[in-house]
Design a protein around this nucleic acid. Structure first.
Lengths: 337, 337
DNA sequence: TTGTAAGCGTTATCAC
DNA sequence: GTGATAACGCTTACAA
């Protein structure tokens, strides 16, 4: 293993000081044109790779942004991460990705690790609200922390998120308008309070009865869980309309219906969340709640950059919340077409 | 923004030297039990967070592993990343994730960035074989680089991968055994040479004619591309059997068939790759090539750790290749059931 | 058991 | 324009 080349090696090679090399490498105008190009030439020849760890130490800046999410297998969240990664890269930042498996302690651990690694900022898809204190203390320590969820409760830090309440409201409302008075709901539990609230709000606003047996709770978003939820929900005969808090859940339910000979949408109307490609291509194209992912990631990244710039002023201000409004992508499964 | 606490702050607080604090924090037995606990108490009280950048600089080790893949939205690859992230974390490593968008130059840039960040190792899902020289030079510089693809060509670095040739061979063979003599193939292009080879090998072995019009090439793995590929493939009447190099492609083709009134598997037999949950839950459950993801990630991670330990010996050895063998998950879509 | 001093590879400050 | 020198926060000899 050939030892790594340092600026010192280049300096020795040319009989210059380390300082000159350092400046020349960043094209400082303070260094003579000729010296500059000589330095850069030798750097290339020796295959010099700058050590960004050393750089980070002195500059107190790593150009790394942490990104915490429950599971990389969640298509919406990983798509968000993907878009942000490219946007951050454009500005010279890289991303450290960590998952929590929806576990409060893992989330806390992930935050600690990222802080220890001196990241310049953190994006967090929180698993629940249990780490609020830690989140607040990170914010008040001046580390930009942007939450990727939020809603009607007071946010513990700056946040950019899709308004899930509104999404669920619109979807439920849509079903109600189509005449359904009995609407089932498949929910992912604690992480879906907002959606659940939206669903209930419609029931209240339209004075429809809320019935616990119309709610199925699942542990995570998968076809399998949706299938099981449907079987539970429809144990005593079909529920004529169902809102699922993810497309996968809806598609699992769709399969259950198919196997029982229930037609969608004739016998059961179905709406999902996230508008995945799978929704569009399903055997019965799925109506789904959707939003502009690009808009969210663009706003999230620019909020992050602003926070990084204003680091000290940030702490004193109220957390900033940016909401993205969803719309309904109407297809065949809800029976409106 | 409250200044960050350093070991020096703890030392001053207790009238100790920085060194003592450093040792006490890592529970060194050289430090008096009492001092140790006092130090740790104060550390906790001041909310001390170790600066791992400084640590990395002196130890010449970052405990960060780079992970490069084309797109985070590829479910197989991101699942691999997810599993590895958790395994690495168990051993104190974190992951820096970068994407290449299947672009040679982005891949090269990502490698440079990771090297500059002094990562202890790199996992790479290569986009193609164009960066082979760079890959070789990284290996010979003693940086562990584990490729997550490979096959019948000589690998430029250590590698752990699913044997795609064998997967395609098994799938094609399966269709051939069912009596199909005209088998279509939907391929993702350069990234799928191995699969394509496997497909062709069966044709050769069984003396079936290879026909270019039975091959559809797509730009990426999506339902939409599969849909288009099917329409191209079947422009002059249905092809009775089709192997797609991803489940998404197969499911897109499935939709095309449904829309034209072609039944699967009666009119068209279909096989996909990757055995995603979507394959199992499709309207016609999809036969698919599958493999043990856990086995692959476990082997990849332990190979990485071994390479990190043997760093200097590594360079001289031949690259190590670990192949995982796929199997066929047979469901309704191929007509064998 | 604890302290002193050197060093990791950069950047930043200030002379010359 | 270029070069000393200090600093970043930690670890690791080695000394006391």
């Amino acid at each position: 293993m050939s030892k790594r080349i340092r600026q010192e090696d280049i300096a020795k090679e040319l009989g210059l000081s380390i300082n000159t090399v350092s400046l020349a490498l960043k094209n400082s105008s303070r260094i003579n044109e000729e010296t500059r190009s000589k330095v850069q030439q030798v750097a290339k020849a020796l295959n010099y790779i700058p050590n960004s760890i050393a750089r980070s130490l002195v500059q107190k800046k790593t150009d790394v942004i942490g990104f915490i999410l429950p599971k990389m297998t969640n298509p919406v969240q990983i798509e968000t991460a993907q878009q942000m990664e490219r946007k951050l890269l454009t500005s010279g930042y890289n991303m450290m990705l960590m998952t929590t498996d929806s576990d409060k302690n893992y989330e806390s651990q992930a935050l600690d690790i990222l802080l220890s690694r001196q990241v310049d900022g953190i994006f967090l898809f929180p698993t629940n609200k249990h780490n609020q204190d830690k989140i607040k203390s990170i914010r008040s320590a001046g580390i930009p922390l942007v939450l990727l969820s939020g809603g009607r409760y007071k946010p513990s830090s700056d946040a950019v998120y899709m308004n899930q309440f509104s999404g669920a409201y619109q979807a439920t409302e849509h079903l109600a308008k189509l005449g359904y008075r009995e609407i089932g709901f498949i929910t992912g539990g604690a992480a879906n309070v907002e959606k659940f609230d939206g669903y209930q709000a419609v029931l209240r606003d339209r004075q429809l009865e809320f019935r616990e047996e119309l709610v199925a709770r699942v542990s995570h978003f998968s076809y399998e869980q949706g299938y099981k939820a449907a079987s539970k929900l429809m144990a005593n005969g079909p529920v004529r309309a169902v809102l699922a808090s993810s497309d996968y859940l809806a598609l699992g339910a769709l399969r259950w219906c198919r196997e029982r000979g229930l037609r969608v949408p004739e016998d059961v109307a179905l709406i999902g969340f996230d508008d995945l490609e799978a929704a569009e291509y399903a055997e019965v194209p799925l109506t789904s709640v959707t939003y502009k992912g690009e808009e969210l990631t663009t706003k999230a990244v620019s909020l992050m950059f602003r926070l990084i710039e204003e680091q000290e002023r940030m702490t004193s201000k109220e957390p900033e919340c940016i909401e993205i409004n969803p719309t309904l992508s109407i297809r065949k499964s809800c029976g409106a077409i």
